[in-house]
Design a binder for these strands. Structure first.
Lengths: 218, 218
DNA sequence: TTTATATGCAACTATGGTGTAGCGGTTTCG
DNA sequence: CGAAACCGCTACACCATAGTTGCATATAAA
């Protein structure tokens, strides 16, 4: 089993998923995975995020190669391409939700939570770009988590508005969209040029809340 | 030649392209097109933007159907799928450049130009989303126009900063990215829910320049 | 009306990606 | 160590899409 494809760079400090997951889709796990198998499955999911976020139409061949694995091995765990994508989306959504929860959006001061969450989101692997852009096509658990994420985001925005951190007349739906768009952009930038998540988060929050203009007459 | 597929809604008030274009790619135009042929070609390009921005992997069959045209007719004008996409990108870039130029970015007061350009961009058909997202893969003329667009955008931002409309410490590259991300978002919203371009532009500019927060101590 | 150009349609080839199956060697784990 | 699980590899069937060709019909233009 020695093989040395064009693997994607190793990762990751956030230590995301502990397989076996309670994944319910059309996965091919009869019973507990052996250690090496679990490792391989993790790697595939991880790499799929990365590859698909760069090229949403990437073939399984490419994904497998990037994971340093034979194409048929992918099929050994995931019945179809769609099953892989579903599983991957679920993992990505889990990571995003965790990044949000760790920012204590319900209890911490809104702006503190915003900083923390933004930095967390920028830090996690860029994979969720693919998932998020397909938000409309999420199935099963991933869709549910996505719904929760949306709600949590809205509640945080409401808290911020109630505390005066967001002007009363601002449409929170739009605010959320704008936030999402800016995060996306920060991602792209980090993917290309690297950079410190905290610094990027700082700048993003500053832009979103204070704008790039000289300030309004209040 | 009567045919009634699932055409895309008719358009458009901006009256964009006047074929025959000085397109230089691998198009299949020997000599001047007949009136109906030019019409068909316009329609195909127009519809391709729309369809591909929703589904970047859409087949030529889908595009042709949306244009109310047989698949083979597409091949009659464009040698390959790629040739169609290139031509489409070129058209989209032309439209965007025109939308910018009409805002007089070099001469009008910066904020006036910003409003005008933003409204113009939101108003034009949503097709350029596909093209802009593939900016890295632009060939030939489209790439050149894209470069010009980038430059014009940066110059406008510099003028705005020089005039005090943008704080001196703001990184203009980031400002440009943020602007782009917000435009993208405004597009999506308009595509889904409709809405007045001017109002959307107003809100976008307000968010970008003043933020959603209560204002900073200046 | 006449001619050249366009279009729809059907039929075809070629290619590439998806998904399956089995064999032989390798790794985990009891 | 030994059984079971895992993985790489080869070979295959299948299907969707790209791209081509020829012909009959329809339309623009002179």
């Amino acid at each position: 089993m020695e093989r040395e494809g064009d693997q994607v760079a190793e990762s990751s400090q956030r230590e995301p998923l502990k397989l076996p997951l309670p994944l319910d889709g059309t996965l091919r796990i009869d019973r507990p995975l052996r250690a090496d198998a679990a490792r391989t499955m993790r790697k595939i999911l991880e790499v799929a995020e990365e590859v698909l976020s760069k090229d949403p139409a990437a073939t399984l061949e490419k994904i497998a190669a990037a994971a340093g694995v034979a194409r048929t091995t992918v099929y050994r765990r995931f019945a179809t391409r769609e099953a892989l994508i579903d599983a991957m989306s679920e993992v990505a959504m889990r990571e995003v939700e965790q990044a949000i929860d760790e920012g204590r959006p319900e209890t911490a001061p809104p702006m503190v939570a915003f900083h923390q969450i933004t930095a967390n989101l920028i830090e996690i692997k860029s994979g969720w770009r693919f998932t998020m852009n397909q938000a409309h096509a999420l199935h099963g658990t991933a869709a549910k988590i996505h719904g929760r994420i949306f709600d949590k985001c809205m509640r945080l925005l409401e808290r911020a508005q109630a505390s005066g951190a967001i002007r009363p007349e601002v449409d929170l739906i739009w605010a959320r969209s704008a936030y999402h768009a800016l995060i996306e952009q920060a991602f792209r930038e980090r993917a290309e040029t690297g950079g410190d998540p905290d610094a990027l988060a700082e700048r993003l929050i500053d832009t979103l809340f204070n704008g790039i203009g000289p300030g309004r007459p209040s």
